[in-house]
Design a protein around this nucleic acid. Structure first.
Length: 428
RNA sequence: GGGCCCGUAGCUCAGAGGUAGAGCGCCCGGCUGUUAACCGGAAGGUCGUGGGUUCGAAUCCCACCGGGCCCGCCA
């Protein structure tokens, strides 16, 4: 019997030894209650001066919040205890005393919480989110592995942008200017010529000073690329991935969801996800009184209106060429729009996936690079891929923290990252 | 890059021209069934920084610094 979780499942009268940290303490003089926290949960320990030796009682009295302690005692089922179970202490020893100014307390602002993220990480609710995040990553691996995808690790230091617009973090590389990656897409495109179907789970970096509840400057990016895939294959894969991970995370995280008091709305991913084209989206916006001319960007306000029409994630497809990066393949039936799709999460949670069919023809890709005012020599190896046995292919990227924000109803993506990076926060 | 807002005790905030306040936390004392325990007491501040107006500035004005929210950009 080594952890809190096991104690809740064990029977009355069993002797137990626990190691953990003092989460809260309530003293009644000769009786004190300690809420003991370990990696699996929190349980009340009752330290009664009449039942433990004087040395143990003295240690328990002096143990401050967050002290690490060793406790031995007897399991008792008692309705007065939180959760109905407590440990009646027979022996208490402090392993590491804590200073008396532990900064994580009820009522502090998010600034204090994130300035002390290294300590805030100990809170049961944060622990639960981190376990759910781990389950989500696990589910992503399960999904891709079961479908013949190979995981590939791509470089973080790169020389050119993938996205035209997004800003890159500059790094001094032995005197040469290089950048932190925004996406591993180009490297994955190189890899499909041998592995055919690849995926990666890596950090991506965006130097935008985006101070919103859905932006981090460093975020974890699930990306995949598939040889021979067309538009339909692409949307089908994204939909099945999102459905799989939501249902699987729910299965794997029952206990953590109880700790958070959250329910994952698995009904949101049942059945096919609605698909609407950019042109149809404009119609919806006009019905809501938005002056939606062809070519306008679908911003946060527009996304909220559109996703508000549906209760499931919704694909927004066929964006105009000029709104998308140069590598997006035009729709053969209307070359002004691209075979691209963004997935908008329900309840105003915004874009969680960006995807598209890639241009596979050398000349077409080269002329698009020139049209965007970019230099083909910067993309020499990316262009090479279209010279030697090019194949149709498509891929997508999904933001891990954004998915967690959506399914757990988090107010901010920073809650989904252990040590979030934002424009104003780089420590801890 | 654009717009709005906030910096007063360790934390959360009130005070909006007249000599610095509360709650929580810490510390001390009390308490054998608490659930963010409770009760009593004590300590704790050049009011973000610099300048200006005024008999007098936490309070009004200017600049700077730090932070938050929304938008743009995106996942």
């Amino acid at each position: 019997m080594r952890n809190v979780s096991e104690v809740f499942d064990a029977g009355e009268g069993v002797e137990v030894e626990l190691r953990g940290w003092v989460w809260r303490k309530r003293s009644h003089g000769r009786l004190l209650f300690i809420d003991l926290r370990d990696s699996t949960g929190v349980i009340q320990v009752a330290v009664n001066a009449g039942r433990v030796g004087p040395e143990s009682f003295e240690e328990a009295s002096k143990a401050s919040r967050e002290s690490s302690v060793l406790v031995r005692g007897i399991i008792a089922h008692d309705p007065r205890a939180p959760g109905g179970v407590e440990v009646r202490c027979t022996y208490f020893k402090t392993i590491g005393q804590s200073l008396d100014d532990f900064p994580i307390r009820k009522g502090v602002t998010s600034r204090v919480l994130y300035d002390n993220r290294h300590l805030y990480l100990r809170s049961p609710r944060v622990t639960a989110v981190m376990r759910i995040r781990s389950n989500l990553i696990w589910a992503v691996h399960e999904f891709f592995r079961s479908r013949g995808f190979v995981e590939i690790d791509c470089p973080t230091l790169v020389t050119a942008a993938v996205e035209g617009g997004a800003t890159l973090f500059e790094v001094n590389y032995f005197g040469k200017k290089v950048y932190l990656t925004q996406s591993v897409q180009f490297y994955q495109e190189a890899a499909i010529y041998s592995l055919e179907r690849v995926y990666s789970i890596q950090p991506s970096f965006r130097a935008e000073k985006s101070r919103t509840t859905r932006h981090l400057t460093e975020f974890w990016h699930v990306e995949a690329e598939m040889a021979y895939a067309g538009f339909e294959d692409l949307l089908k894969t994204i939909e099945e991935l999102v459905r799989y991970i939501v249902i699987r995370v729910d299965e794997l995280s029952k206990k953590e969801l109880r700790t958070l008091g959250r329910r994952i709305r698995t009904e949101e991913v049942e059945g096919p996800f609605p698909r609407i084209t950019y042109a149809e989206a404009l119609d919806i916006l006009r019905r809501h009184g938005v002056d939606a001319e062809w070519g306008i960007d679908i911003g946060a306000d527009e996304e909220k209106i559109i996703s508000g029409e549906f209760e499931k994630p919704v694909f927004l497809t066929h964006f105009p060429k000029k709104l998308k990066a140069f590598y997006h393949k035009p729709d053969p039936s209307n070359r002004e729009v691209t075979l691209s799709a963004d997935l908008l999460a329900p309840r105003g949670n915004g874009e969680i996936v960006g995807s598209g069919v890639r241009i596979d023809d050398y000349e077409e890709l080269r002329s698009r690079i020139l049209e965007e005012g970019l230099r083909p020599e910067d993309y020499y190896w990316y262009l090479d891929l279209r010279k030697y046995g090019s194949v149709p292919h498509a891929g997508f990227g999904m933001g891990v923290e954004r998915v967690l924000k959506w399914i757990l109803d988090l107010p901010h993506v920073r809650m989904a990252a252990p040590f979030p990076r934002t424009p104003t926060r780089i420590q801890p």
